[in-house]
């Protein structure tokens, strides 16, 4: 008799540190600026709000399948994983360290609604610093990859950070976008996007749609081991950062807008892209899903 398959351990349900320990090689994680150093947000204290010892993100060194990496994991349960000054500085510092240390890569476990509104300008500034440091690390030859499978997804400024990575792995439950559904509903009205329609929200922002649009590279099960394997796989592919490539990406995006700009629902887009049974996509497991969309995918260079 063969051994039963290892039980799935949900990535989405795990906390930031547990995800990090499961994605990296066992026992390899060494945290930098850990909670005992108590580098907390000065802004939350000024607003009389409770702070977190690590400001909602764990960063440090580790190995992934034996290769040295730097890694960060955002805690979505603390203020929606939002980026405040300290939180952002830890990510920026990690990416700058990567450019200097030249590890095999940087793995970002993204789970964030974007900028922490309580810290306003400091948070916005932090996101721009993260972006600059990320691109500098890539320019220095260090691949930066992102994993999206937490409850908060990856939105706002962190959505931009995600799309600036060399590669992204997502679960269907992970979501990626710029303006989140509530923001669109609030600013454009419920006719534009009804956030009570959960299926629509996931069709629009979920990992599967991002795969069809070519914005995410790998679709994985909501499983810690699957995300670990995906992170290792992403580190082997590098997306060269050149002006020519950016121009190609711009062209591809313009083509996408021309082809699909009038689609009211992702299902319409999947049909227009040539998926045979588009309404079935949300129900498919990753493997049959990837087979069904193989020819419809529109990778952004």
């Amino acid at each position: 008799m063969s051994a039963p398959p290892a039980p799935r351990r949900s990535y989405r349900e795990a906390g930031a540190r547990r995800r990090l320990l499961a994605v990296l090689d066992p026992g390899s994680f060494r945290e930098l600026v850990g909670p005992a150093e108590r580098v907390q947000s000065p802004h939350l204290a000024a607003l009389d709000l409770p702070a977190a010892f690590d400001d909602g993100v764990a960063v440090g060194r580790g190995t992934l399948q034996g290769r040295p990496v730097l890694a960060a994991s955002q805690e979505g349960a603390f203020l929606g994983g939002a980026v405040g000054e300290v939180h952002g500085a830890k990510l920026t510092g990690l990416l700058r360290l990567a450019a200097r240390e030249q590890p095999a890569g940087v793995v970002l476990l993204l789970d964030s609604g974007g900028v922490r509104l309580q810290e306003a300008n400091a948070g916005l500034l932090a996101v721009s610093e993260i972006l600059r440091a990320l691109l500098a690390a890539r320019a220095a030859g260090v691949p930066v990859v992102g994993l999206i499978g937490g409850g908060w997804g990856c939105f706002g400024g962190m959505g931009i950070v995600g799309r600036c990575c060399d590669g992204l792995a997502m679960s269907e439950e992970g979501r990626l976008g710029l303006s989140g559904p509530e923001v669109i509903e609030t600013t454009c009205g419920v006719e534009e996007l009804d956030t009570r329609d959960r299926a629509l929200v996931w069709r629009l922002y979920g990992g599967k749609h991002r795969i069809v649009l070519g914005e995410a590279d790998l679709l994985v099960e909501d499983d810690l081991a699957a995300f670990r394997a995906a992170a290792a796989s992403l580190l082997t592919r590098r997306r060269v950062l050149t002006l020519e490539r950016l121009c190609q990406a711009q062209e591809a995006l313009e083509g996408r807008l021309a082809d699909f700009g009038s689609c009211a629902d992702p299902v319409d887009l999947w049909a227009a892209a040539g998926v045979v049974a588009p309404a079935e996509l949300p129900l498919l497991e990753p493997e049959p899903f990837l087979a069904a969309v193989a020819r419809a995918r529109r990778p952004v260079p």
């Binding site: 540190r17 850990g34 909670p35 005992a36 702070a51 977190a52 010892f53 690590d54 349960a77």
Partner: peptide, 18 residues
């Protein structure tokens, strides 16, 4: 080494032991 459990979220708390 110091240990951290829990999370600062509504109705919850984090505890650092040293």
């Amino acid at each position: 080494p110091p240990a951290l459990v829990g999370v600062v979220a509504s109705g919850n708390l984090e505890v650092l032991v040293e």
